[in-house]
Amino acid sequence: MSAPSIAVRVSEVAAVTPLVKRFRLEPESGGRLPAFSGGAHIAVEMQDGAHRRRNAFSLMGSPSDTTGYVIGVRRHDNGRGGSRYMHERVTPGTMLRIAHPANLFPIDGRARKHLLLAGGIGITPLVAMAEQFARDGQPFELHYAARSPEHAAFADELLERFGPAVHTHFSAQGRRLACASLLAEQPLGTHLYVCGPETLMDEAFASARALGWPEQSLHRERFAAPARGLPFAVRLARSGRRVDVGADQSMLEALEAAGAPVASLCRGGACGQCETRVLACDGTLLHADHYLSAAERGAGGKVMPCVSRFAGRSLTLDL
């Protein structure tokens, strides 16, 4: 399934903190963009010279605003280059292609109350959720943890927009977010949504489970950033071709660039869409996804090329 893409023009770029920029994307041909749901993301395609990159970014505007999408991008200088490209090369007027929104971090509409926990740039999908809850009159509370006010992108506008529903927790000021006590006093029917560093998400989930929260009420953003790694090569069994995967490229991107595309959705190891069969492997599959079970990894018959890599002599895929 290869998604039809949408042409957009960057209409606005703003530096929010030294590390975070906000971009507004509007439909190139005018008209409306598809509506979306809080927690959704889009894949943005960037033509970086000969190199085509695709990065997933959460939508952080109001889900009611279909005149343009807003994304917040934190610069990762040690990443594969997508965020750096956005920061350095994308300016008002830049044309980009994006995929339709998809949501791997959906809201549970049955919740009696929505409790949102953000760490750092993890705030972005939760902003869209807060907009949706405010629009639909659903009770919510947003807790935003960051090192200091300077690191808390969008905090001021959130406070202004949603007032008492927003709580900031700045560790440098000695006000660290205390998950356990926050979770201990929530009414029945509360759902928890966490997005941020793995450590924050793990801590929040562990606290909730220890208090007896059921799994159905726990939600987290499950992106694995495709890691940089050593270059390697894969062999495609059906065409007999060899595809080289560069250090700052995912296996999925390399396959797409070589004209051997694999259906994909989240590009972050969560959705399972790009699952690919491994026919022969003389070396080690470096699994980095959240999708394959331990048993499937052990069996060595499948790989998720969006985030996983390979080290060894040769890898043959059923492509």
């Binding site: 399934m1 998604a3 039809p4 598809p34 979306f36 339709h100 929104p101 998809a102 959705l265 959705c271 399972g272 869409q273």
Partner: peptide
Amino acid sequence: LKFMLNLGQGQ
């Protein structure tokens, strides 16, 4: 079910 869960917008 696995297929439906990944059903994309616009497709």
